[in-house]
Design a protein around this nucleic acid. Structure first.
Length: 299
DNA sequence: TATGAGGATAGCG
DNA sequence: CGCTATCCTCATA
């Protein structure tokens, strides 16, 4: 049985095209990490098969398999070519598992849509790629490149509107960018398919084409998505609103992209944070630590 | 060398 | 005017 889910299988182990980061993490959660969100739905003897998407082709299957085994789970990588299909249970008990899988599917879909909504807010762009101007396309590219640590290839897609981008085939993406065209195509594909429900779309629409976002709101949004941004900024104590900026350059870069300020850096971003001291929005925690701040009014 | 505090100034909706 | 963005000086680790 196969579940067709946008996003998960294509993204989760996308190859790390950027050489600068040699560690295993490529901006995506590992499969075990991702699946751990759904632990409650997985029975111990359930095996998962991930059909190999084109994005997965450059990953060493054995290595991936190993990674999954290390996590103490019984995951299996299917060698079938195919795309964007995730998973499915093997060992037997179909009744219960079918129900579980339906729930997983709905949860995964939900996660994906929420991720896109967040990205819309953070980028201040429309959730529907077809509506993007060439400027929006560049913004999305820049963001995606930084988020997943891909090489910067904005130039290869210059002067392209969202609708033009949407009708491009995967091969055309590859032609424009041999190093990561396939990955970018996969990411765009997630956006293209993430538009199933209209209510969400309308919702996201009103929330993102809004007012200029404030820095503290932006930081909050990043903190809400540890799965995507946890390597750059994370809570040290969520209840007290204490957070730490783990990668100052990266956070500053993302903020710069959001505000269309290519020259943004941590020096300037931190100056803005300090402006919040007297406004009572953010302060240094009682025991001051480097790169650690605290929201005065935690939610 | 990176971070932190805060003054000064300019731009912008 | 509020909210930065930018630049700068001085202090600190």
């Amino acid at each position: 049985m196969y579940i067709d889910v946008p996003a998960f299988p294509r993204g989760h182990v996308a190859p790390c095209a950027a050489q600068e980061h040699s560690d295993a993490f490529c901006g995506f959660p590992s499969m075990p990490e991702y699946l751990s969100r759904f632990d409650m739905l997985l029975s111990e003897d359930t095996a998962w098969i991930v059909r190999k998407s084109d994005v997965l082709t450059s990953i060493d299957r054995d290595e991936e398999l190993l990674q999954c085994k290390e996590a103490g789970q019984d995951y299996v990588i299917d060698s079938m070519a195919g795309h964007r299909a995730l998973c499915v249970g093997l060992s037997g008990q179909t009744d219960v598992e079918d129900r579980c899988l339906e729930q997983v599917q709905s949860l995964v879909l939900d996660e994906v849509l929420k991720d896109i909504e967040t990205a819309c807010k953070l980028l201040n762009i429309n959730p529907d790629p077809a509506e993007w101007s060439s400027g929006h396309v560049q913004k999305w590219l820049l963001w995606t490149e930084h988020l997943y640590r891909l090489p910067q290839v904005g130039k290869a897609f210059q002067h392209l509107s969202g609708s033009e981008l949407c009708v491009m085939s995967e091969d055309e993406f590859r032609q424009r960018c041999s190093s990561c065209g396939d990955v970018l195509f996969a990411h765009l594909d997630i956006w293209k398919s993430g538009l199933g429900s209209e209510e969400r779309c309308a919702e996201a629409d009103s929330s993102c084409s809004g007012q200029p976002i404030h820095l503290w709101q932006f930081l909050r949004e990043l903190l809400l998505k540890p799965h995507s941004y946890g390597r750059s900024i994370r809570w040290l104590n969520k209840e007290k609103g204490i957070f730490k900026i783990e990668d100052s350059a990266h956070v500053a870069k993302l903020w710069g992209i959001r505000k269309n300020r290519p020259a943004m850096n941590y020096d300037k971003l931190s100056r803005s944070i300090r402006q919040y001291y007297k406004k009572g929005i953010i302060k240094k925690p009682d025991v001051s630590q480097r790169l650690v701040y605290q929201f005065v009014h935690p939610v």
